[in-house]
Structure formats: C-alpha cells, structure tokens
Simulated assay, not measured.
Amino acid sequence: MLRLALFFLIISIIAGLFGFGGISSAAAGMAKILFFIAIVICVVLFVLVLIGVGAASGR
C-alpha cells in the first residue's frame, strides 16, 4: 500500500512539473489517503501484536 502511495506521489510531482494541476492534486489526494490507510493498518497490527493476538501466541 505504501508503494502505491509513493507511486501516486511521484505521479503528482511529475504532473505538477508539467503544469497539470488537476491531475497533480488528484494524485496527491490519493497518495495522502493511501498513506493514512497504511498508517492505520500498521497501528492496528502493532496493537494486536502487543496484546498477543495471533498465531505465535499459541492460543
């Protein structure tokens, strides 16, 4: 997911350099959304590991 966010960020920068403001802002918005979704998933998984939910806990 972070790769996709990075891809949209690069597309946004390139589109901005060539003067395509609408495409640039749309790609930047997608990159922002994907980045925050990835952060939320990372935090949720970190909390689950801390409380011991998962296959490694032996339950």
Results as ranks from 00 to 15, higher is better:
M1S: 09
L2H: 14
L4R: 08
L4A: 14
L6V: 13
F7V: 07
F7G: 02
F7E: 05
L9K: 10
L9T: 12
I10A: 03
I10S: 03
I10V: 14
I10D: 10
I11A: 14
S12I: 01
S12L: 01
S12M: 01
I13F: 03
I13R: 05
I14M: 12
A15S: 11
A15Y: 04
G16I: 02
G16M: 00
G16T: 03
G16Y: 03
L17A: 07
F18D: 08
G19A: 07
F20T: 03
G21A: 14
G22F: 05
I23V: 06
I23E: 01
I23T: 08
I23P: 00
I23Q: 05
S24T: 01
S24R: 01
S24G: 05
S24C: 09
S25H: 12
S25F: 12
A27C: 07
A27S: 04
A28N: 07
A28Y: 02
A28K: 03
A28V: 04
G29A: 07
M30D: 02
M30Q: 12
M30T: 10
A31H: 02
A31T: 07
A31Q: 02
K32M: 15
I33S: 15
I33F: 15
F35D: 10
F35L: 14
F35C: 13
F35A: 15
F36L: 13
I37E: 11
A38M: 05
A38Y: 07
I39C: 13
I39M: 15
V40E: 09
V40M: 12
C42K: 15
C42Y: 14
C42P: 09
V43H: 07
L45I: 14
F46A: 10
V49G: 11
I51F: 05
G52K: 02
V53Y: 10
G54Q: 06
A55F: 11
S57P: 00
G58V: 02
R59Q: 13
